[in-house]
Design a protein around this nucleic acid. Structure first.
Lengths: 144, 144
DNA sequence: ATAGAAGTTAAAGTAATGATGAAGTCAAGG
DNA sequence: CCTTGACTTCATCATTACTTTAACTTCTAT
C-alpha cells in the first residue's frame, strides 16, 4: 500500500537532514536509479553510506541532478558539471546555489556568444560561410 | 614532394565548383577524414562520387562541418544538426546560410532561456533549488 | 608505367552516458 | 522468522560520436 513512496525510514532527529535513498533521489530528480549511481560515480553528487553500505543522499542531490540535466541541454558534459558543482558546499545556502546558477548561465551565454560571433566570422559581409576561402590558386600554377 | 596539400585535380570549367576530396574537406574543417566520412553517413554533408567511387564534396561541406561543430557546442546532436541542414540547398546562397544560422542561434537562445527559467523555477523566491521540499521540521526562521 | 599518397568499405574499438539484469544483502511488516 | 521490496556490486548491453584497422583500389606526379 505504501511501498512505492519511500518515507523516512529512520527517525533522524539531527536537525534538518533527510537521508534519501537512491530511489528517493531518482524519483525526485526524475531519472533512473542507475543514473543516480552513475552521477555519484562521476562526482556530480555525493553520498554517505549506512552501516549496511547503502547510499544516503541529502536533499541537494536531486537538485544537483536537476541543474545538471539543464546544463547538459546547453552543451556541458558530466565532467564539466561535476566541475561546476565542485564549488558547491555540502550543505549549500541559497547564495551558493545562486553562484552556481550564475556560473552556469554565464557559461551558456558565453557559448551562445561564441556561436554568434563564429557564425558571423564564418559569413563575414554578405557571403555566409566564405565560399571562396581556400581558392587562391584558381587554375594557374597547376600544370594539368 | 607536395602530396600533403591536395590541389585541383580536374580542370572543372563548370562555373565555380571545387571537387574537394575527403582530405580536402577534413583539412578545411579541421577534423579527421574519418569524421568527414562519418558526417556524410549521418547526413550532415553529402557527396557525389567519381567514376572510381571516391567522394567529392563542394566547398559548402567544410562550412557545414564548421557550423555543425558550433552547434554541438551549444548542445545539438548530430541528428539535430543534420535536421537543421535539411533545409539547406545543395548550392546554398547567403540567404540560405543566414536562415540556417538564424535557426541555430534561435535554438541556442531557446535553450538558454529554458535554462534561465528552469533555474529560476527551481529556486523560486530566495531559496534556490527548493531545499525545503520534503522537509517538515526545518528551522525556517531564515528569511533575510 | 609505376610508386606511393590518399581513397574505399566493413568491422571493431573507444569514450561518454547511461539502462538492464543477475546474484546477493538489508530493513520493515506480519 | 520469513517474505518482500529496495538496496548493493558487477557485468553486459545500448547509443552517440567518432577512430582505427585491414585489405584493397584509385589518383597524381614523375
Amino acid at each position: 500500500m505504501m511501498g512505492t513512496e519511500s518515507s523516512i525510514r529512520q527517525t533522524v532527529e539531527k536537525s534538518g537532514q533527510e537521508p534519501l535513498t537512491v530511489g528517493d533521489v531518482a524519483a525526485q530528480a526524475g531519472v533512473a536509479p542507475s543514473a543516480v549511481r552513475f552521477y555519484e560515480s562521476r562526482g556530480v553528487i555525493s553520498a554517505t553510506r549506512t552501516s549496511g553500505n547503502q547510499r544516503r543522499f541529502s536533499a541537494t542531490a536531486a537538485c544537483r541532478i536537476h541543474v545538471g540535466r539543464l546544463a547538459q541541454s546547453v552543451g556541458l558534459s558530466i565532467g564539466e558539471i561535476a566541475e561546476l558543482f565542485a564549488s558547491l558546499p555540502d550543505d549549500p545556502e541559497p547564495k551558493d546555489w545562486q553562484f552556481v546558477a550564475d556560473r552556469l548561465v554565464s557559461e551558456a551565454e558565453r557559448r551562445l556568444e561564441k556561436l554568434r560571433s563564429d557564425l558571423e566570422a564564418l559569413g563575414s559581409g554578405s557571403r555566409l560561410c566564405d565560399l571562396g576561402a581556400a581558392l587562391s590558386n584558381r587554375d594557374e600554377s597547376e600544370l594539368n
